[in-house]
Amino acid sequence: MTIPNEISGSINNIRPMSQSANRLMNIVADPEYDCQDIIDVVAMDAVLTAKLLRMVNSVAFGLRVPIDTVARAVPYLGERMIVGVSLGLCASHLYNKPLTGYESEEGALWTHCLRAAIAAREIARYANDKTILDVTYTGGVMHDIGKSVISIYLEGSPRKIVQGADSGKFTDYIEGERQILGTDHCEVGAAVAAHWRLPASLTAVVRHHHEPGNSPQEHRALAYAVHLGEFVAMMGGTGTGADTLMYRIDENYKDYISISAKELELVVFNTGQEYEKIVSAMFDGQETAF
């Protein structure tokens, strides 16, 4: 597949990620990163710092003493959430716009990616390769970014794709996107990742999260963890509209992730708990997350 010129033009017009977001992503792409590096990047960015401190001091965290530095916020928010929220903040113009081409509302892309990120991190605990643990969260945050670009080109199409998938004309929503646009949200997302110069591991996740078996071997476990994390998010009802649950699970995940049915129920539960806490903190008294 090649991305049609009109869509390529939209990708080229996306503004670059902030310097802070780029530095954070490159830090967490290294499995042996130092938490202090994250603190240093956030502390240098006044907007990020203000946002994170507002979150940690929200009612959802129930702290008796206000937190006033990024370093003190880390134990409460966790490194993952700090990175995830920072990325969301830096790309809020993409995450928060309504995906009309998927019949979903403003903010749905962000809540879906957030829940998938939490779930992917939980799933990664059962991965044979434990080095993927920290980058799975960032991969989950980024995985569906392509939808923010192609949504406008899919307007008027969701019902046709859903009908096609229900009738067996399309095996899943991806195939519908390809039939209508000649590309899909994975390929377009990978182009956005390249535009932002994301690390290779994250670009691979964005490109292959629906077909993780096609991911380069060195990023395959990561792609499977995000693939399954997205299913956990959708099973919890947090999707991006008409495409929710309309995908195929790659059964070969068992070669990379060893998880039982009971363990998956624990993943679903833990994901739901953490998701509700974060969303409650992020939307505390606000119309939108960012």
């Binding site: 399954l228 299913f231 959708m234 099973m235 649950l245 195929r248 699970i249 059964e251 995940y253 068992k254 998880i259 039982s260 049915a261 998956l264």
Partner: peptide, 8 residues
């Protein structure tokens, strides 16, 4: 979710 492994 149509999971042939039944887990999901």
């Amino acid at each position: 979710v149509m999971d042939p492994n039944s887990t999901f």
